[in-house]
């Protein structure tokens, strides 16, 4: 079911350590009850692609919040704030988990929520989605879109990202959808295969889809990596997965 009437606002939410941040909140108009989704933005920041993706999910009936992971970095153009975050080594996994948890609480507190909340993320947000699905106790469904560094070289770990998400796989406690491009380098098809093998061994509920002719970020219409055919199919899989697991 789709909703032509949607409502979009920038709203305050309570994130990690009780700090108040800003979030884009797009939801279908109407009494509901609606399932909800937290959309985790990518390294470049709280930008137009992620905001538009939130509106797309709202169009398909999901009350979607895209919280700005960089709200502590000050105001400015999303790309400038993203550059500041990068120079600062990014956000820590603990802080990110606190913010996603706060965004989930915001969604569940809405009077027209059906109580179920999924998480989706793109690129670095895919990694953070995988981590959220393993570390947070109340995620009902998760979609990892080409999350890089789920499997991380130990040399790439640091104080802010101290543990590779794959090492938490035994704690994955919700259905997981993964979408990947076979021409991607991060994650490479080999890394995706290894991740799948681990999930299979652990008996986890997952489904992975791999796309030929696509690399990284093939949903992003603003970049040369955009692959319309694969993106249309991928979005359909996302919507179907959330309908199945959050309705």
């Amino acid at each position: 079911m789709t909703y032509r009437n949607i409502i979009c606002d920038v709203v305050p939410f309570t994130g990690h350590n009780g700090e108040t941040g800003e979030a884009y909140y797009a939801r279908p108009a109407g009494p509901g009850p609606f399932p909800s989704v937290v959309l985790i933005h990518h390294v470049p920041g709280w930008n137009e692609f992620c905001i538009e993706a939130a509106r797309k999910l709202a169009h398909h009936g999901f009350a979607t919040i895209c919280n700005n992971l960089y709200f502590r970095m000050g105001d400015g153009d999303p790309d400038d704030i993203g550059a500041r975050a990068r120079a600062d080594g990014g956000v820590s996994d603990e802080q990110m988990l606190g913010d996603v948890s706060g965004a989930m609480a915001f969604l569940r507190a809405q009077s027209n929520s059906n109580g179920k909340v999924g998480v989706i993320g793109f690129c670095s947000g895919g990694r953070q989605t995988y981590l959220s699905a393993c570390r947070l106790p109340n995620v009902d469904a998760a979609v990892d879109c080409w999350g890089g560094r789920v499997m991380a070289d130990p040399a790439a770990l640091n104080a802010k990202q101290p543990v590779a998400p794959i090492d938490y796989s035994k704690d994955l406690n919700c259905p997981l959808l993964g979408l990947f491009g076979n021409e991607d380098k991060e994650p490479s098809p080999e890394q995706v295969n290894k991740t799948e093998a681990i999930l299979k061994d652990l008996g986890k509920n997952y489904e992975f889809h791999r796309y030929d002719g696509a690399g990284h970020a093939f949903f992003d219409w603003s970049r040369p990596s955009y692959r319309p055919e694969q993106a249309v199919d991928g979005w359909k899989k996302v919507i179907d997965f959330f309908n199945k697991n959050l309705a």
Binding site: H42, V43, A85, A87, G89, S124, G148, A156, K185, E186
Partner: peptide, 9 residues
């Protein structure tokens, strides 16, 4: 790559 790996000078 979508990493936070940077060189700073």
């Amino acid at each position: 790559m979508c990493s936070y790996i940077t060189e700073k000078a």
